[in-house]
């Protein structure tokens, strides 16, 4: 009787081991083994979003979007070719701890430079100035800014404070819907159940630019906040100056403009011209 039990346990354990032997299938990405830090040469680990088309998106086994393109350009200037970059998913809530724990060498993930964050990490850049904005149906004319949302339905992703900001500061009578992903917000917008989706303008432009959404939605184009997208670095990183130089070069040689246009194609979106392209702030 005991033999049977032990054999059954052994089978269970063997099954678990054989599963683990396949390794962790990171969605569409190679395992992280053998990765070294930037200083050690070899590869560089860059944190990006995986779920924001147009900015940072895992497209089959490659990564696309403005953040990814900027990261690739900057890494190239730092001496890493595209195949030496290892992209890692860094969701908003986890970005500071990933840098503090050394999980990544830098982060390009719609990362706004704020004083609170500067206390625990360093920033290079900014390389883009976004602003909170609204995505509405192509034929919508009555929503022109956050104060026109009174009594309307507004969608944002779970855990983001952008929708609450509108309720607190612009339109107390707005109805808020929180969804786990942007795609569900956009589906609700397409179905007419919500009137607008809110987050940073370039993210909205990226969503509108996807093939499935072509011609259906538009970004209102009246940003009401200033989000300076910076490059997140661990505190005391020596890379800041080099990254800023790379960003400046990227803006001067026209690549920046090219990348913005490429990733927001067909949406008629143009970044806020008063603030863009930005000048990188001096390193701390």
């Amino acid at each position: 009787m005991r033999k049977h039990t032990i054999r059954l346990m052994a089978v269970a354990a063997a099954a678990a081991l054989s599963l683990s032997a396949c390794g962790g299938g990171e969605v569409g990405e190679e395992p992280t083994e053998g990765a070294t830090t930037a200083e050690g040469g070899g590869t560089i680990r860059i944190g990006i979003k995986y779920d924001q088309p147009g900015l940072g998106y895992q497209d089959a086994d490659t990564f696309t979007g403005f953040d990814v393109d900027v990261a690739t350009y900057v890494a190239d200037k730092l001496g890493y070719s595209a195949d030496q970059i290892e992209f890692v998913e860094s969701i908003s809530a986890n970005r500071e701890t990933m840098l503090q724990n050394g999980d990544v060498d830098m982060i390009f993930a719609t990362y706004s430079i704020t004083d609170a964050r500067k206390e625990v990490i360093d920033f290079a850049g900014p390389y883009f100035v976004a602003g909170q904005d609204l995505l509405v149906a192509e034929d919508n004319t009555d929503i022109t800014g956050p104060e026109t949302l009174e009594g309307k339905n507004l969608c944002s992703v779970t855990g983001s404070t952008s929708a609450q900001k509108i309720k607190d500061n612009y339109a107390t009578g707005v109805n808020l819907l929180e969804r786990p992903g942007y795609a569900e917000c956009v589906t609700a917008l397409g179905a007419g159940q919500v009137d607008a989706v809110t987050t940073d303008d370039i993210i909205l432009a990226g969503l509108a630019a996807t093939e499935a959404n072509a011609g259906k939605f538009k970004v209102v184009g009246a940003p009401f906040s200033e989000e300076n997208y910076g490059v997140g670095l661990p505190k005391g990183s020596e890379l800041c100056e080099d990254i800023n130089a790379a960003i400046t070069e990227m803006i001067e040689d026209g690549t920046w403009e090219e990348l913005v246009a490429k990733n927001t194609e067909g949406t008629g979106y143009t970044p806020n011209a008063e603030l863009n392209p930005p000048t990188p702030a001096p390193c701390a």
Binding site: N153, N175, L177, E184, T187, Q193
Partner: peptide, 24 residues
């Protein structure tokens, strides 16, 4: 739960209460 919102409410427009919070 995701389907309740994504399918029942979003696509079939089933509304169970006038206010958003009550509805969800």
């Amino acid at each position: 739960i995701i389907f309740m919102v994504l399918v029942v409410w979003t696509l079939f427009a089933v509304t169970l209460a006038p206010g958003f919070n009550d509805n969800f």
